[in-house]
Simulated scan of single mutants.
Amino acid sequence: MSETAAKTRANRPVLALAMGDPAGISSELTARLLSLPELRSAAHLIVIGDRRILDEGAEAAQIALDLDFRTVSDFSTGPAERPVFVDLGHLDPADVTRGEATLAGGIFATENFRFALRLANEGRVDGVCFTPFNKKAMRYAYPGYDDEIRFVSDVLPFKGKMREFNVLERIWNARVTSHIPLSAVSAHISEDAILAEVELTVACLRLAGIDNPKIAVAGLNPHAGDGGSFGMEEIEVIEPAVARAKAEGYAVEGPFPADTVFLRAVKEGFHAVLTMYHDQGQIAMKMMGFDKGVTMMGGLPFPLCTPAHGTAYDIAGRGTADVGASREAVLLAAKMAVRQAGLKETAHNTD
C-alpha cells in the first residue's frame, strides 16, 4: 500500500458491509445505508451480497439505486471515492421466502459474512459491519453456529478473547456471561472473569474515543445480595473483583443493584455498565434506544459492528425499516477503525 493510500485509510477507513438475512429487512437497510451521504464521508464502503437482492431492498425502501457506486465480482483494489458492491451472484430472489428462516437465506448471509471477514483478515478492509442475521437460518447453513462470536472464531485464525457489547450513544453495556442458560450464570462468574471484562471494556471504549472511561458494575442477585440475604456472589466474587480493578487503576464502581444500575449510570455519567448476564443489560439497553442500539464485537484486531435489533420478519418488504441502528453501527466502526489505525501507526513509529 502506498503512503498516500495509507494516510487516506487512516482518516477515512475502508469498511466491509455484509448483507444479512434476505428474508427480513437486511436488503432494505443495505440500500438505505448506501444512500446516506454521511456514511460516504465517514468511510469507504465495500458492500457484499447479490445485486438482485439489493435491488429488491431498494425497491422496498423506494430508493433509486442509480447511485454512484461500482459493482464488481471481487474486491482486489484499494479504496476509491465511490462505494463498491461485490456481487457474489449467489441468490436468486425467487428462492427467497419473505419472513421465513431458510437454508438459502442462511447460506447467503454466511457467505457474505465469511467474505467480509476474509477481507479484514487480509488487511484489505479496516472494519466489518453487517445488516441483521437470523440465527435459525444461520444454523441451517452452518450447524455449529451459536452466535457471531462462534462463527468469527471458526472462520478467522484469531484466538484471542472476543466479547459482545451493546452500545448507545450515551452508554455501553458489557457482560461477564452471554449466551448461556441462566442456571449456569453463577458458576461462570469469577474475579478473573470480571476483571478481564473490565479490561476489555476499557480498551474498546478508548478505541471509540472515550479516553477515561468510568464503569458501573451490576450485582447478580436482587438488591445486589442485600448484604448476603439474597446470595453471596456480591460479597465473595464481585466486590473483590471491583477492588482488584480499582487497584489496577480502572475507574470502576459497584456492585450496584441491577434494577437501578442503568439509572445510576445515566445520572452519574458512567460510560458503561458491566452486567453479569445477557438479559440483565439487554432489556435496559433496548428500552433506552432500540432504534439506535449497536452490537459491537470487541477484542478483534478490527471493529465489527451491527445493529442490535433483528431481522424484523414481520415488516419485511414494507419499506418501513428504521435505518438508525445500522447507520450508528457503520459510524461506530468507522470511528474505531480510525482510532485503531492511529494506535498501530504510533506503535510502528516507536519500534
Score class of each variant (00 low, 15 high):
Ile149His: 00
Ser190Phe: 04
Leu205Arg: 03
Asn166Leu: 15
Ser153Gln: 11
Phe151Asn: 01
Thr201Val: 11
Leu168Tyr: 06
Gly127Ile: 08
His188Pro: 03
Ser186Arg: 15
Glu169Phe: 00
Lys161Val: 09
Asn134His: 14
Phe130Lys: 04
Val198Met: 06
Phe130Ile: 04
Cys204Ser: 15
Thr177Pro: 09
Arg139Leu: 08
Asp154Gly: 04
Lys136Val: 15
Leu156Met: 12
Arg139His: 12
Glu148Arg: 05
Tyr140Met: 14
Thr131Glu: 06
Phe151Gln: 02
His188Cys: 12
Ser178Phe: 11
Leu156Val: 10
Cys204Ile: 12
Val202Ser: 12
Val167Pro: 01
Leu156Ser: 13
Phe113Pro: 01
Val202Tyr: 13
Cys129Asp: 02
Ile180Gly: 10
Phe151Arg: 01
Leu117Phe: 06
Arg118Phe: 03
Ala208Met: 04
Leu195Asp: 02
Ala137Arg: 09
Glu111Val: 10
Arg175Leu: 06
Asn134Phe: 07
Glu191Asn: 06
Glu164Arg: 08
Phe133Asn: 08
Tyr145Ser: 01
Ile171Leu: 15
Arg139Phe: 04
Leu195Val: 13
Phe151Ser: 03
Val198Leu: 09
Val202Cys: 15
Thr177Val: 06
Lys136Trp: 03
Glu111Met: 10
Lys136Arg: 14
Gly160Ser: 09
Ala109Phe: 00
Ala120Arg: 09
Val167Lys: 09
Phe130Cys: 13
Ala203Asp: 13
Ser178Arg: 11
Lys161Ala: 10
Glu199Leu: 12
Asp154Asn: 11
Glu164Ser: 11
Glu148Pro: 01
Glu164Gly: 02
Thr131Tyr: 02
Ala116Lys: 11
Val198Cys: 09
Glu122Leu: 13
Asn112Thr: 13
Leu182Ala: 06
Val128His: 04
Glu148His: 09
Glu164Met: 15
Gly160Gln: 08
Thr177Lys: 01
Val185Pro: 07
Lys161His: 14
Arg170Glu: 14
Val125Phe: 05
Pro143Cys: 07
Glu199Asn: 07
Ser178Cys: 09
Val198Gly: 03
Ile189Asn: 10
Asn166His: 15
Tyr140Pro: 02
Leu207Thr: 04
His188Leu: 07
Met162Arg: 14
Asp147Thr: 05
Val198Glu: 07
Asn173Phe: 00
Val152Ala: 11
Tyr142Pro: 00
Phe133Ser: 09
Trp172Asn: 05
Phe115Trp: 09
Asp146Gln: 10
Leu168Ile: 08
Leu207Val: 04
Met138Ser: 12
Pro157Thr: 11
Gly160Arg: 08
Phe115His: 12
Leu119Trp: 10
Phe130Val: 04
Val152Asp: 00
Leu168Asp: 07
Val125Leu: 05
Ser153Trp: 01
Thr110Arg: 09
Ala116Ser: 14
Glu191Pro: 03
Glu148Gly: 00
Lys159Pro: 04
Glu164Pro: 01
Val155Lys: 02
Val155Met: 11
Ala187Asn: 13
Leu205His: 11
Tyr145Lys: 00
Asp146Ile: 13
Pro157Met: 12
Ser153Phe: 00
Ser153Leu: 08
Glu197Cys: 15
Phe133Gln: 14
His188Phe: 05
Asp192Gln: 15
His179Asn: 14
Trp172Glu: 05
Glu164Val: 13
Ala193Trp: 03
Ala196Tyr: 01
Phe113Arg: 00
